[in-house]
Structure formats: structure tokens, C-alpha cells
């Protein structure tokens, strides 16, 4: 975020708290509830937390994919399709080779290819970016549906790696430090992308291209190149989210298995104010809602499962309606750049 309008009397700390008050209050509320629940039923609470992290992972990755593109001015509605393609190619690679690491790379690579396609449509062809993303989604749905054959099996999926004594920390230990590799990679990516966006020359260039491409161009930044690279990198991250689904969480592929996660990730990105840490927090909130939903389905409550199942989608709508107007959106987001 830019600090140009800050009055000299406001310190960055004050600004931080002003901007994130709601988020901090919500987080404190959830922490309080969690500790209280932990005292009542430690096992169930740990299960909810672990499930929170699990279901937030593809959302964090999806949101990171989205914000890579959007920070540099390309709207990415095709996260869903990029994720689905990554999930499918990762799964196929696992079926053929049985090598999980190779399969993850295959998924990431296929996501990057889909990102390249999006970049080509939105940067080079200057197509409407929302339609371009929809093309990606429908294409991924069609291709994976056609090439998928029922009955393919794999040797297995990635297993959790416990980080020693860290995993024994009460409440958060099992949820944070006893995870499979892609989940750890997600934690690292959040920090890494924050660093790249806000503390490197590349990040400054990306953000300037997203806010004012003409000015960036005048200063010698190659707008097209920056957008291409960011959108492709975003696609690769979405591919990793797909790999998470087929190589880590479920272990197999189903048609249309992403189930709207790519779109929920977009809401997560907006809710997180287009920042990696914001997206992480928002994704954890969604994951938490999802985990509670799963718990409710096991519990003895007389609510039809369909109503519990809609909860994450309704939450997305509420969040989007409540926050989109209060977020700074990159000024050139969605606008193709025409060189003079």
C-alpha cells in the first residue's frame, strides 16, 4: 500500500492498527473462542484447527495466484480452471510415474501454462479479462473431463511431516507443525510473496504497473513483461493449489473437483485487501467456517446437510458485499495496456 498521503503525525504502527482493526478484533474473538473450546474438548478443537489449516491451503494459494496478477493489473477469474488443470495433470503424473515430487512439478507447470494462456489473452490480445478467465475455466473443465478415465489409481499421496517439538505445542502445534509438504510450502509462499511485492524492485515495478502503467512505462518498466511474468507465476501457484487437492488432500481426481474454490479464493483475496498476509488471514477464516461446517455434519443437529454445505458460499457473498467497497483495488486492474 502507498504511504504518500500519510500525515506526518501518524506513525506506521498507528496506520497499521487503523487499517486492520476489524481483522484484529475478529482474530482475537476467534482465538478466545478457540481457547475456551480447547478447555472443554481438546481433541475436537485440535481437529477443527487442523481442518481449518487444511481447507484454507488451496484458498491461500488461489488468493496468492489472484493477487500476483491483480497487483500488476490483470484480473484473474480463471483461478478455478488453473487449479483444476493443475490437479488433473498432477494426478495423471502421479498415476504414470508414481513420483510425488515430479507430479507436483507437473501440476505447477500446467498451472503456469494456463497462466501463460491468460496472459496471452489479456495482455497481448487485450481481450476482456473476465471473459478470458471464463475461457480458461470452461477449457479446463472440458479438457480434464474428456481425458479423465474412471478407475485410475495411484500409489498414494503426500504424508504429514511432524516438525519435532513444535508439533507438541498445545492447541496450534498439531495444526501448524504437523502438515504435508505443500501446506508448509504455502506458509513459506505467503512470506515470500509479501517480501517480493513490498520489499524488492520487482514488487515495486509490479505494483506500479498495476496502479499506473503509463507512468511505469515512461520510467522504462516493460509493462507487458511484468504482467506476463506475474500472471504466469500466479498460474504456477494455482497449479500448486491443484496439486494440493490431488496429491496431498484427496489423493485422487474427480471431475470438477475444485468445486468453486478458485472463486472463493478471489473473495479471500479481496477480503485480504490484496495483500498476502491479509489473504492468509481471510483464508483461515474461511477454512474455520468450513471446519465448523464439517464438525456440524458429524454432530447430532437436525439441520439438513445441504444447508450446512452452503455456508462457505454464503459467507463469500457476505464478505464480498461488505468489503469490496472498502478496499483499495489496484487502479489499472482489468485494464489492458495500450502502448502509445
Amino acid at each position: 500500500m502507498e504511504n504518500t498521503n500519510t500525515l506526518p503525525t501518524v506513525t506506521p504502527q498507528q496506520l497499521f492498527f487503523k487499517r486492520w482493526t476489524t481483522t484484529i478484533m475478529v482474530a482475537l474473538g476467534i482465538i478466545a473462542i478457540t481457547i475456551w473450546q480447547y478447555m472443554l474438548d481438546p481433541q475436537a478443537t485440535e481437529a477443527v484447527l487442523a481442518s481449518t489449516v487444511r481447507s484454507s491451503t488451496p484458498l491461500v494459494l488461489g488468493a496468492l495466484c489472484g493477487l500476483m496478477g491483480e497487483r500488476s493489473g490483470v484480473i484473474n477469474i480463471g483461478i478455478e480452471g488453473q487449479m483444476l488443470m493443475g490437479a488433473f495433470i498432477g494426478f495423471l503424473a502421479n498415476v504414470w510415474t508414481g513420483n510425488l515430487l515430479f507430479s507436483v512439478f507437473a501440476a505447477v507447470f500446467s498451472g503456469a501454462i494456463m497462466g501463460l494462456l491468460l496472459a496471452y489473452m489479456s495482455v497481448t490480445l487485450k481481450m476482456d479479462q473476465i471473459i478470458g478467465g471464463t475461457v480458461i475455466n470452461i477449457l479446463a473443465l472440458g479438457l480434464t473431463g474428456y481425458f479423465y478415465q474412471v478407475g485410475l489409481t495411484t500409489d498414494g499421496k503426500m504424508q504429514s511431516i511432524s516438525l519435532g517439538f513444535l508439533a507438541d505445542i498445545p492447541i496450534i502445534g498439531p495444526a501448524l507443525f504437523n502438515n504435508p509438504p505443500i501446506t508448509y510450502a504455502t506458509f513459506v509462499l505467503v512470506f515470500l510473496i509479501h517480501y517480493i511485492l513490498f520489499h524488492t524492485k520487482w514488487g515495486l515495478r509490479s505494483r506500479s504497473v498495476g496502479e499506473h502503467p503509463r507512468a511505469a512505462d515512461t520510467l522504462g518498466v516493460n509493462v507487458f513483461k511484468v504482467r506476463y511474468i506475474n500472471v504466469i507465476a500466479g498460474g504456477a501457484i494455482a497449479g500448486l493449489a491443484g496439486a494440493f487437492l490431488t496429491l496431498e488432500a484427496v489423493g485422487s481426481f474427480e471431475r470438477a473437483m475444485t468445486n468453486g474454490r478458485g472463486f472463493v479464493a478471489l473473495a479471500v483475496m479481496i477480503f485480504g485487501k490484496f495483500t498476502p498476509f491479509g489473504a492468509w488471514g481471510a483464508a483461515l477464516l474461511f477454512g474455520f467456517a468450513n471446519a465448523i461446517q464439517t464438525q456440524l455434519q458429524f454432530a447430532d443437529i437436525q439441520v439438513p446437510h445441504q444447508f450446512i454445505g452452503m455456508f462457505p458460499y454464503i459467507l463469500t457473498i457476505i464478505v464480498l458485499s461488505g468489503f469490496v467497497g472498502r478496499t483499495h483495488i489496484p487502479a489499472a486492474d482489468g485494464v489492458p495496456y495500450e502502448k502509445e
Binding site: 473476465i130 468453486g260 463469500t316 458485499s321 467497497g325
Partner: peptide, 16 residues
């Protein structure tokens, strides 16, 4: 009234 983009809300409402 809120500016929530119809692409996301309509997709979420499809699941609903």
C-alpha cells in the same frame, strides 16, 4: 448497492 462483483456472487449463488 454494495458493488460486490456479479461474477463471484452469481457463481456462489449457483452452489446455493
Amino acid at each position: 448497492y454494495t458493488g460486490a462483483h456479479e461474477v463471484i456472487t452469481t457463481i456462489m449463488l449457483n452452489y446455493v
